[in-house]
Design a protein around this nucleic acid. Structure first.
Lengths: 132, 132
DNA sequence: ATGCATGCAAACATTTTGCATATTC
DNA sequence: GAATATGCAAAATGTTTGCATGCAT
């Protein structure tokens, strides 16, 4: 058989590039709609549908982190690389990435103690930041 | 001034009781709609709107845990009391409640180290359970 | 030239709200 | 009897999909 195509053939389009640029530019989580607004503001001419689709693809490929905010909306942020968690200010929304071997180890061990394998976890810490 | 009423005067109604019973009966997270289905099935005669409202009140008062599932729907589960986290089998959905002073302390300390106050957190651990 | 990507509008799904009516206190 | 709770239908919200057209390859 011929070489297996990695995934789907990703095509480089003006709008997909625009979404990537906007996402890469920021440092915090933004919803698809916020990103669409910014693109609109920059006259990038990218439809909301396309933004949704682009972000989904980017999330699938691990290019961005996708989390769900308190309102149940998806938020996206460029991924800083490794595994990490988020410390979110519940007042202004400021986000700090945190990592900690402590939790990693704890989660893994408690899961295995319960007979779970192939473990991973999601952690969000909420608080009020110093500016608020 | 007259005594301040604690919150709103909660009234005991047939339907609110029915929701509480269904929630107390189960052990896993269910969406408002699933709970409504079960009530419907039991001919409890409780409207979907009421189920939503009842669950919101119960969540506010800490009577149930409310989390958002992967699809962004709210799920509710009777609260076993204290603060805890969930270990979820990604194959069969089995849920184990876990607690751990380790994470609690870690989350609190890392948050405060970043200048965050009034901290709380949400943690979900996913894995494959021994039965799967 | 081929076929994935786009974008509009419409479909969808979940949750919330307005308001008349029923029920609890 | 006063005030809250209910329930329907409709609104609101966020996201997805169908399909004709455009564009990258």
């Amino acid at each position: 058989m011929t070489a297996t195509r990695n995934h789907t053939a990703q095509r480089r389009t003006r709008q997909r590039t625009a979404v990537e640029e906007i996402v890469s530019a920021g440092d915090d989580f933004r919803t698809a709609q916020q990103i669409h607004d910014e693109l609109r503001h920059a006259d990038a001419g990218v439809g909301l549908t396309t933004v949704y689709r682009a972000l989904q693809l980017m999330a699938d490929s691990g290019e961005v982190d996708a989390i769900r905010n308190a309102d149940g909306e998806m938020s996206y942020r460029r991924c800083s690389g490794g595994h990490h968690h988020h410390l979110v200010c519940r007042s202004c929304g400021r986000t700090v990435e945190v990592t900690g071997p402590t939790v990693e180890r704890w989660a893994k061990s408690i899961a295995e103690k319960n007979g779970f394998r192939d473990v991973n976890h999601e952690l969000e810490i909420f608080g009020t930041c110093s500016d608020c």
